[in-house]
Amino acid sequence: MSQEPEDVKPKINLKVVYDGEEVQIKVKPNTKFAKIFAAAEQRFGKESGTFKFVYEGKRIGKEDTPGDLDIEDGDQIDCFLEQLGGWQ
């Protein structure tokens, strides 16, 4: 009875895209992104920490939640590999 409010919160579907491939991840608005990152990396078969995550052009932090960023159902999260530069 005491934990009810959490389950009542609507779940949102995140569209997580890496290099043209897309997976759906269902999350609660108050789920920390650290968890979502791990799930996404797992779905794409990557080790944790591989990706940089971006929502609408902005970096997502591990401690953020979809609620913090006003992410809505069906919104897209982009994953990128690290970019390095220096060589000719």
Binding site: K52, K62, F80
Partner: peptide, 20 residues
């Protein structure tokens, strides 16, 4: 906000390549 890790910091050493 940008999260900087220890690994990122290392890249600033001489000859290191900067990352995103």
């Amino acid at each position: 906000a940008i999260s900087i890790t220890k690994g990122d910091l290392i890249r600033l050493q001489p000859n290191g390549l900067l990352n995103d």
